[in-house]
């Protein structure tokens, strides 16, 4: 792994991956208000069951408690946040300021994203910033961390420590371009990748095969994205309404094939079967569990997926 030569970010997730263990990360959406208890309640179910928790940044362009603030609440609760940052809402000054502030207060992982377009959210007329794009954001964080330089080349007094994450969607078009885009993000400085939710396993296997062939999985840790289906309706919605999502009919048929009160369990079964395959898949180093508004199910899912106990480092 080339990441072994990188600066040690002090991230727990980094330690898990560098130790060669199969990583398991979770996700938490901050509240649409100031309720700290809501964050703590969700965090309770994730504590001890995941290595780090992605804190979404105004996900789907809907205003929520800022991702760095919710990240700090998580640190207070004894969990490790993976601070998500989108290019939609901040220019390069605000981004660098938040990276410094986040690092100063103990944030050690970042996921660098373009962000859903503002048109999808609750302020569709907002100006999208997009001063820099996600690849450029990755390069900026790396430069700040490894060279101790701001984007303009000026020196940083005490550079930030960050384990740098990026996203990959193996299911968006054109398929053959996806590996090149992954390569660009690695070249820009990504240490780890979290993928879009995977439902089309043959396509994902092909993506990983190509990434292996290009030597990319030797340069970056890949965490496969998993979201258990809660219902047939959710599966249909993901298939038809979410851009860049690929839900094969066989998933929907399998959910439809069980009794109504067993659909959610079937969704979990599918997810756990996927996780079993990912554990054995060359080039995949962990799973990113996005149990959207289903945090309370994570202990059960982690148990069934046989990813417990999580590694602890002194």
């Amino acid at each position: 792994m080339s990441t072994e030569t990188h600066f040690n970010s002090e991230s727990n997730l980094e330690k898990v991956l560098k130790s060669g263990q199969f990583a398991f990360t979770g996700e938490l959406g901050p509240p649409r208000g100031t309720d700290v208890e809501e964050v703590k309640e969700k965090a309770k179910f994730l504590k001890g069951n995941v290595d780090a928790v992605n804190i979404t940044d105004n996900q789907t362009a809907v205003v929520r408690m800022s991702s760095w603030a919710a990240s700090l609440i998580l640190i207070q609760e004894g969990l490790e946040p993976n601070y998500q940052m989108v290019c939609r809402d901040r220019n390069r000054l605000a981004m660098q300021a938040d990276i410094l502030g986040g690092s100063a207060l103990g944030i050690r992982n970042m996921l660098c994203l373009s962000g859903d377009h503002q048109q999808f959210g609750d302020h569709p007329d907002a100006m999208g910033v997009f001063d820099i794009d996600s690849t450029q954001l990755i390069a900026m964080v790396k430069q700040m961390r490894d060279e101790g330089l701001f984007l303009n080349g000026n020196e940083i007094h005490q550079p930030p420590k960050m384990f740098i994450g990026a996203a990959a969607n193996p299911f968006a078009d054109p398929f053959e371009w996806r590996v090149h885009r992954l390569a660009k993000k690695i070249e820009a400085g990504a240490d780890f990748i979290q993928t879009q939710c995977i439902y089309n396993m043959p396509k994902f296997r092909e993506f990983v095969r190509l990434a292996n062939e290009e030597g990319l999985t030797e340069k970056v840790y890949i965490l496969a994205g998993v979201t258990p289906m809660k219902s047939v309706g959710m599966a249909r919605y993901m298939k038809t309404k979410v851009p860049g999502m690929d839900v094969p009919d066989e998933i929907i048929n399998r959910l439809k094939g069980v009794e109504k009160d067993k659909v959610a369990q079937e969704g979990i079964n599918i997810a756990c079967e996927q996780i079993e395959e990912f554990k054995e898949m060359k080039g995949v180093h962990g799973v990113h569990m996005m149990a959207i508004e289903w945090e309370h199910m994570v202990p059960e899912i982690a148990e069934q997926a046989k990813v417990l106990p999580r590694p602890v480092f002194s």
Partner: peptide, 14 residues
């Protein structure tokens, strides 16, 4: 719509 310089992003849809 995002003025990307390293696209296409994951949201591109067929």
């Amino acid at each position: 719509a995002k003025r990307l310089l390293n696209g296409p992003c994951g949201g591109t849809n067929k």
